[in-house]
Simulated scan of single mutants.
Amino acid sequence: MTEAKREEQIEREAAEWFTLLHSGEADAEIRSAFETWLHGSRAHKIAYREFEQVFRDLEFVAPEAGVDVDAFLGRKPRGIIDGLFALVRRPVLAAAAASALVTVLVVAVLYVQGWPHVVAPTEPVMAESGASELFTQIGEIREIALEDGSVVTLGPASRIQAEFSGRRRHLVLLEGEAFFDVVSDPERPFYVTSQDTLVRVVGTQFDVKRSADIVHVSVLEGVVEVLKPSDIVGVIETGDTASVPKQVLMAGERVSAARRVALPEIRQIEQAKPGAWRHGRLAYEDASLAEIIADMNRYSEQRINIATSEVGDLRSTISFDTEDMDEVLTVIAAIHPVTIERSRGGAVTLRRRDRR
C-alpha cells in the first residue's frame, strides 16, 4: 500500500470513529476500542485531531465523544478559517464531514452576523431585608440589586428566595439559574442553597443552575466553596465549615453536584464563560439532551418535549445563541439519532430515529 493510500485509509477510519462516537450508540466497549485505535500510531492521533478540530473551531457545536481526547492529542486551538482550510486539504475528511458541516455552517454564519440577545434585563430591583421571593417569566432576564450592594441576575423561568439579616446573607435557588456578583464582606459570608448543595463565598462572581437533580456551580472570578453538609441550616447559622466535605473552585472551574451523592471532581470550563446566558448564549459540556432541552424551554414559549429517557440521556458538548431555537434543533438532529416532530399547536417532540 502506498503512503498516500495509507494516509487516505487512516483519514477514513478517523471519520468513521468520529461518526460512531457521536451516534448515540457508543458504549464502553466501543470507547475502549477507539482509544486502542487512537493510541495505535501518531498518524491516527493526527487524523482524528484534524477531523474533530473543525467542529470545535466553529465554536457553535462540538459533540462530546465520551472520552478525554484532548488529554492525549495535545490539541492547540486554531482559528475557524485555518480549520476549514485544513479540512479542504483532506478530501476524505471533507466528504465524510460534509452533511454535518453544512448544517453547522449555516448556524455559525448566523452567529457571526450576530443574533440579538434574548431579553434585555430590566432595571435593577432592590430586594428588601428579610425573606422575599423573586422570579422571572419564560424568556425574561432580570437584574436584582440586593441591600448589601450585590447583584443577582435571574435567568428565564427562575425563582429565588432571599433572606438577609445583620449576621448572614442567604439565597435559595428554587428553580432555574442565577448569576451572582457578590460584594465582599468577610464578616458576613454569602450563601446560596439549592437542593442539598450549599455554596459559600465572601465576594466573587459565580453562576448556579438547578437542573433536575443536579446543581451546577461555575466561577467567573474569585473563590467559591461548594459543600454537601448534612445540616445546611446549622452550617449557615454557625459558619463552621471545617468538617464539611467541600470543593474549592477558582475562576474558570465548575462542579456538577448530584442530589444525595458526594461531590464530584472539579472540571475546567472549556465552553463559554460562566453567565454567558446573560448575553444570549448557552454552553454545555458533556450535558444530557434532557438538561439542554429543559433550558431551551425556559427561553422560549415553544414547548420542546423529549419522547423517551433514551433520547434524554444522549449527551453533547454544544454552544449556541438562544435567539433561534429551530436552528439548534436542526443541529441536534444532525448529530444525534433523533427526529423532530412538530404538532399543529406548535409543540416539538424529539424521538429516537428508527434503526434501519
Rank of each mutant, 00 (worst) to 15 (best):
E3L: 12
A4N: 05
E7D: 00
A15S: 12
H22W: 10
E29V: 15
R31N: 11
W37V: 03
H39P: 08
K45D: 00
R56D: 10
F60R: 01
A62N: 11
G66P: 00
V67E: 03
L73A: 02
D82K: 03
L87Y: 00
R89E: 06
A100Y: 05
V112E: 12
P116V: 08
E133H: 10
G139I: 05
L146F: 07
R159E: 15
F164Y: 09
R167M: 00
V172C: 08
L174A: 12
V182Q: 06
Y191K: 07
V192P: 03
T197Y: 05
T197I: 12
T204L: 13
F206S: 03
V208M: 04
V223M: 06
E225F: 08
V226Y: 01
D231M: 06
I232Q: 05
Q247V: 11
V248S: 14
M250E: 15
M250C: 07
G252T: 14
R260Q: 15
A262I: 13
Q271H: 13
H279E: 12
G280E: 02
G280F: 01
E285Y: 06
E291M: 09
I292G: 09
Y299E: 07
E301A: 13
E327F: 00
V328C: 04
V331I: 15
I340C: 14
I340P: 02
R344G: 02
G346N: 03
G346F: 02
L350A: 13
L350S: 08
R355S: 15
